[in-house]
Computed example of a mutant assay.
Amino acid sequence: MLTRRFFDTPAWDFDVTKPFAEIERLRQRMDRLFDEWMPSTWKAGRTMGVFPLANLTEDRESYLLRAEIPGVKAEDLDIQATANSVSISGERHIPQEEENVSYHRREREGGRFSRAVALSGEIDPDRVDAKLEHGVLTLRLPKTEASKAKQISVMSTQS
């Protein structure tokens, strides 16, 4: 029976010493319900969130973008660069498990991904250099001459 307690909130009978266990159990039930009722076409279109994880640094001459893409081959990547942005898209293939297995934990996702990064200055898209090594994609994005910082000299007018 549902009863009302403090502040008119409903209360269910559960062990108050383990509130997080109850929340975790509720989350698992909702996941199962969502998986049962979600059409399979939606499941196939699920994305991997913010992937790939990337760091963007800058020096005087260029930007350097490093993205973690473990398990992705160079031929599965599509890299596009414009004057003010770069995008990385591709597909990660994860081998399918046997049919009669049950997962204890499933964190590795396969499928298509896309990530776009806006730049604060202009780059020369024709001179972008890309290297994939040990699951890390490194893009060197050379700045245009117009976007490079210029040293300004100050003249003194003191007598």
Results as ranks from 00 to 15, higher is better:
P70Q: 02
F20P: 10
S89L: 02
N84G: 09
Q80T: 14
V154Y: 09
H104P: 15
E97Y: 05
E107N: 14
R108C: 10
S156M: 07
A118K: 14
D126Q: 11
M30K: 12
I94K: 04
G111A: 01
M155I: 15
N100F: 07
V86I: 12
A44D: 04
E109C: 12
V101Y: 06
L56V: 08
P142A: 06
R25V: 06
M38V: 08
R108G: 09
D15T: 09
G49I: 05
E68M: 07
G121C: 10
R66A: 07
A44F: 03
Y63P: 04
A74R: 15
I88K: 00
D124E: 10
L137K: 02
T144Q: 00
F20Q: 12
G49F: 05
R112M: 05
E145Q: 10
L132C: 01
G110P: 03
E22K: 11
A21F: 14
F113P: 04
D8T: 09
L139C: 04
E22C: 10
Q151S: 09
L26F: 13
R32P: 13
A21K: 11
R25L: 09
R5F: 08
D59Q: 03
L56C: 08
D59C: 04
M155R: 15
R140V: 14
L2E: 14
G49N: 02
F14H: 09
L33Y: 10
K131T: 06
S40F: 09
D8Y: 12
R29M: 08
W42K: 01
S89D: 03
D31T: 13
A130V: 06
S120Q: 06
P95K: 00
A81H: 05
R5D: 08
S120K: 06
L139P: 03
H104Q: 11
L141D: 02
S62R: 08
F51M: 03
R112Y: 07
A81E: 01
L64S: 09
G90I: 03
V72N: 00
T138W: 03
V72P: 00
S114I: 15
V128M: 01
I88T: 02
A74H: 06
G111M: 02
S159A: 11
A149H: 06
R25W: 12
S120P: 08
R32N: 10
M30P: 08
S85T: 08
L119P: 02
E58H: 02
S102V: 15
S85R: 06
P70Y: 03
V72F: 02
F14S: 13
M1F: 13
R60E: 14
G110K: 01
K150C: 06
T17F: 06
A81K: 00
I123S: 01
S153N: 12
V136C: 03
N55K: 08
L56Q: 06
H134T: 07
P95C: 01
D8M: 10
N84Q: 13
S159Q: 15
V50E: 11
T138S: 04
P10R: 05
G45R: 05
G71P: 08
M48V: 13
E97S: 13
D59A: 02
D59G: 04
I23F: 07
D124H: 03
M48F: 04
D129C: 11
P95V: 03
L53D: 13
L33P: 10
I69E: 00
I79T: 05
A54F: 11
F20L: 14
A54Y: 09
E109I: 13
R66C: 08
T17G: 13
M30F: 10
W37V: 15
L2M: 12
V86R: 00
